[in-house]
Design a protein around this nucleic acid. Structure first.
Lengths: 224, 224
DNA sequence: AGTCGTTTGAAACGGACGTTTGATTCAGAG
DNA sequence: CTCTGAATCAAACGTCCGTTTCAAACGACT
């Protein structure tokens, strides 16, 4: 009771971020109004302007709050990987996937909302969001690319980058389109059991990454 | 002269769809205003209400116009596949990928805009859009799933559905996040040469699809 | 107790939005 | 020619938006 009861100042910021995250997820950035957000957060409308300067600032803060710890955890797990092990590729893959999938599982609102927000993060029309995403991801991407370069020396830098792009795409799609998957599969697949999805992702993506270089590209392919 | 020259009535609808597609792609559905759309189309503001009933109707029409021919072409290519051939899987994969990638390449506005719109299509917050997408994709998905079931009998229906989901994710990410890829890769990759992207996609995804079943799931896996 | 900087509150601002209205235009049928 | 119905137009409607304002409340410190 020492910190949450005597004052609620500090809570205003967090409540706003929580409500904004929830409503951005559900309706999109532009369609979620500050009035709806502040009402759900139980704070005054002007608090947004005070704490974040503008709606744009709130948007930035919502993304930064999640992306930074996410990528920090990824980098931490990556450093713990043994690239010389037989399953080195799977280790690195898990270092990339697990933090993201876990973050969705632990999301307060459940899967459908926040996952979509994160899944849409790379194709956001909003220019400011894309700058935040780029800033948060650049270093992480570089580090994982370096690891993949060691693990998959038979691929050209270009093809390797594309493959990493595909990995990110499968992950983002899994995280963001769980509801559509359930609908299109007629209920065969459910995103509820995240660990299953993770296992499926890992086997699929590791095989894809290990594939020989694409035909037609005169790189030093290995069996073609 | 019978329909397009003597009058330009019929053109109003198409101009509206073109402009809407362009601005929806660039700014998102909610952020693109009818005033901006009608201005770019060179038509009156009230034309939206007249031809499509509402903005929602315009949105639906924009998606339907592209999705229906896209999935028709996919189904057509799928029927031409020889599932018994050695490269049967690659044939089916191409039947799914090629129409989408080609549609992006032939898009009037260039890659970045329309691709993002289509890449976002599965995670749209807009409920109406998701209904349109579901209606247009359900039959296509079922047909491709049937083909994959034949080609990959070692996978459980659940895992197969997930893998198809990953395929769709990689494709959507490739189509929709080309700009982010160019930025994050530091210019190593460019989406300009669509055929390269397609080749990379194919080798990656076919290897992923052929991968043995994920460990831990007591299916009839083959070498584990 | 009194002052200062920080944080919240209610209310209003100007503007942009989607939608509607009613007049106008125009090709074709009688 | 008149009549008709589809299509377009300028203008306005009411609503909701992001932002601003300014007073009030609060904790920290002297």
């Amino acid at each position: 009771m020492s910190e949450t009861e005597t004052k609620e100042h500090v809570d205003t910021r967090e409540s706003l971020l929580d409500a904004a995250e929830s409503l951005f997820s559900e309706h999109g950035l532009a369609a979620a109004s500050l009035r709806a957000i502040t009402q759900q957060a139980g704070v005054n409308l002007a608090a947004v302007s005070y704490h974040f300067g503008s709606k744009e600032g709130l948007v930035r803060a919502v993304f930064s709050r999640r992306l930074k710890p996410l990528n920090d955890e990824r980098k931490e797990m990556l450093e713990a990987c043994d690239l010389t092990a037989a399953d080195g590729l799977e280790q690195v893959l898990r270092a990339f996937l697990v933090p993201a999938v876990r973050m969705i599982r632990d999301a307060p609102e459940g899967v459908h909302g926040f996952g979509r927000l994160m899944g849409r993060v790379f194709s956001e029309p909003n220019e400011e969001v894309r700058k935040v995403v780029f800033a948060e991801f650049k270093e992480t991407v570089d580090r994982f690319m370096a690891a993949f370069r060691v693990l998959l020396p038979h691929l050209s830098p270009e093809e390797l980058t594309w493959r990493f792009h595909f990995v990110a795409g499968s992950m983002a799609h899994t995280i963001g389109c769980g509801q559509m998957l359930e609908e299109l599969s007629g209920g065969v697949c459910r995103f509820a059991n995240v660990d299953d999805a993770l296992a499926y992702l890992e086997s699929f993506l590791s095989a894809g990454l290990r594939a020989p270089a694409a035909a037609g590209c005169p790189q030093h392919s290995q069996g073609d």
